[in-house]
Simulated assay, not measured.
Amino acid sequence: MFSDTVRDALAAGPSGGAEQVGFFVVAGVIMVVALVQLIRPQLLWKANRPFYRDPDANEPSRAGYVMMRVMAVGVLAMGAFIITRAL
């Protein structure tokens, strides 16, 4: 099923050098964004403010920012696991 496909893809690894470089670039960008979200989630909120009609009414609460940090820890952990498996 789906888990078999993911396991096979991780076991096979990238087939070429360019694909491997692209994988690490994308993974690096995702990890940097997750790190910013962990350290200063308000920066990501400020970057997304223009997309809201009433930004002040939609700003996350303190609990919302805590949840963003928890999600960032999860993304960093999964990213580290996937990168170490790809090496």
Rank of each mutant, 00 (worst) to 15 (best):
M78T: 09
V66I: 13
N58R: 12
F2E: 13
L43Y: 14
V66P: 00
G22K: 13
L43F: 15
A34W: 00
V32E: 06
A86H: 06
Q20Y: 05
Q42K: 11
L35P: 01
M67S: 08
M78P: 00
P41D: 13
N58K: 13
A80E: 06
E19F: 04
V21F: 10
F51C: 01
M1W: 04
R40F: 08
F24M: 10
R49D: 09
R40V: 11
S3L: 15
M67K: 10
M1C: 09
A18L: 14
V75L: 13
L87F: 14
M71Q: 07
P55E: 08
L38F: 14
M1Q: 08
F81S: 05
E19C: 04
D4H: 09
F23R: 14
V70Q: 06
R53E: 12
A34F: 02
A27R: 09
D54E: 08
V6Y: 11
A27D: 03
E59C: 02
G22D: 11
G13P: 05
M68F: 04
R85E: 05
V75E: 03
K46I: 02
F2R: 11
V36T: 06
G16F: 05
G13L: 12
P41Y: 07
F24A: 07
N58G: 04
V73N: 04
L76D: 01
V29R: 09
S15N: 10
M78K: 04
S15L: 14
A72V: 01
L38G: 02
M78H: 03
A77D: 02
I30Y: 05
G79Q: 03
R49L: 09
M31G: 03
G79T: 03
Y52P: 01
A34H: 00
L43S: 13
I39W: 12
E59T: 02
A11G: 11
Q20W: 04
